[in-house]
Design a protein around this nucleic acid. Structure first.
Length: 417
DNA sequence: CGTCCACGTCTAC
DNA sequence: TAGACCTGGACGG
């Protein structure tokens, strides 16, 4: 969930659900959370939210009353407090009754009703954080969705920054310049323009102007290939705008998909999945970037494609071997200089294309990926995603295609209800 | 049961 | 530029 669009949808969710709701008492934190306590308590306060790139800011506003002195004396807030949150890999908001508190609700705001309801920041993996009395993180750039002009200007004017020496797909994750872009967005954006992911960012970006010449807010019309015909090869990509503009418009498309894209309650990610054209899609290729993140793309990977294998798997494998290596020469032998090459078995890269034994039933499922990886083993060659229908097939062999076990593995929030 | 993978930062050799 | 930080779902055995 959490890339720029989801963070923004989260702020919309808070504003919608909490409009007119009066909250009361202290803000509560789960026992297990390592994020700071939120020292705010108030007899009656309101909650609103805004977003910027990959951050959300909650504003707690005490409601007027005449007993200000008393309140202050009682340790109650009389001033608004901002809390800035980052969502990590799994954060989101829910507004529920107290007895429906989601698991992993690490920060909670209680309404004054009876029975009361609770606005929760839910974050299973706890990679998310919050900062009481916080401000937008200084090192993050302008929001790609709502500060488009300054975002664009900043990138164009700082192209000499060595940050742009790296492959474009990696630079797109640099929040100093692309605040709001995440792993699925970088794949979708580069795919739309057919830009090889591992081309130096500067090469891709130089020549672009600060002014967006295509500045007439015309909806980016993109042909979404008929999902049924699978074979997402339908090449009708006629995108409007340059890379920087798509860093703005593509995320906004996700926002326009609406709440169902976000609200885990709806458990309905089908629209979002249908919207995806590249990320995790069948027929696409994926390889690990220099930071170990999976880059999805199609076609030419570009000249700066990572040489050494650094998939989590490869790493783990290497580690394992080390553990079982009693020869004591680890440090010397492969200590570090040659890091991971170990068995660069590089099978013929032609191994890339997996026999297509399955006709797509329905794009979806992230399943089979591991299988592919399996095949590639130590190979650095890109892997194209193969059908996973086989997966559903397999597990529910009794039930072939009909109700296709379309539980869409990932993308499906752990709510499904 | 175990392994691999995930929409993201952080910080420590 | 590796790990670290976490939980849980999908799969494989």
């Amino acid at each position: 969930m959490p890339e720029g669009p989801e963070l923004h949808l989260a702020s919309l969710y808070v504003n919608k659900m909490c409009a007119g709701v009066v909250f009361t008492g202290p803000v509560r934190k789960s026992e297990v959370s390592k994020s700071p306590d939120v020292a705010f308590a108030c007899e009656a306060y309101l909650i609103t939210a805004t977003s910027r790139g990959k951050e959300v800011k909650l504003t707690l506003t005490p409601m007027k009353s005449d007993d200000t002195k008393q309140r202050v004396k009682a340790g109650q807030a009389d001033q608004a407090m901002d809390i800035v949150l980052r969502f990590g890999m799994s954060g989101y908001f829910r507004f529920t009754t107290e007895d429906e508190l989601p698991k992993h609700a690490h920060l909670r705001f209680y309404s004054k009703e009876t029975p009361c309801r609770v606005l929760s920041f839910v974050d299973a993996r706890r990679f998310g954080t919050w900062h009481p009395n916080g401000t937008w993180q200084p090192d993050r750039g302008p929001c790609i969705m709502f500060e488009y002009e300054s975002f664009r200007e900043k990138v164009v004017s700082r192209l000499s920054d060595r940050a742009f020496d790296k492959p474009i797909c990696e630079v797109l994750l640099n929040q100093k310049y692309f605040n709001g872009i995440g792993n699925y967005l970088r794949a979708e954006i580069l795919f739309r323009l057919n830009i090889p992911p591992f081309v130096a960012a500067r090469v891709v970006l130089e020549g672009l102007e600060s002014e967006d010449l295509c500045e007439n807010e015309k909806k980016v019309k993109d042909e979404i290939p008929d999902t049924k015909t699978s074979d997402g090869d339908t090449q009708l990509k006629r995108e409007t705008g340059d890379l920087l503009r798509l860093c703005h418009t593509v995320p906004l498309e996700v926002v326009s998909l609406g709440g169902k894209g976000y609200d885990p309650q709806k458990a309905d990610y089908s629209d979002f999945e249908a919207w995806l054209q590249c990320y995790y899609k069948d027929g696409m290729t994926s390889i690990r970037d220099h930071n170990g993140r999976t880059m999805w793309f199609k076609g030419d990977p570009g000249p700066m494609t990572p040489k050494v294998l650094k998939s989590p798997k490869a790493k783990k494998k290497a580690k394992k071997e080390e553990d079982h290596d009693y020869t004591d020469n680890k440090k010397v032998a492969r200590g570090r200089s040659e890091s991971t090459p170990k068995k660069k078995v590089v099978k013929q890269e032609t191994a890339t294309k997996t026999p297509k034994k399955e006709k797509d039933a329905h794009p979806k499922e992230a399943g089979s990926k591991r299988r592919e990886t399996e095949k590639s083993e130590e190979v650095n060659a890109p892997q194209t995603k193969e059908r996973s229908a086989a997966r559903g097939r397999k597990s529910s062999s009794a039930e072939p295609t009909a109700g296709a076990p379309r539980r869409s593995s990932r993308m499906t929030r752990q709510n499904s209800k």
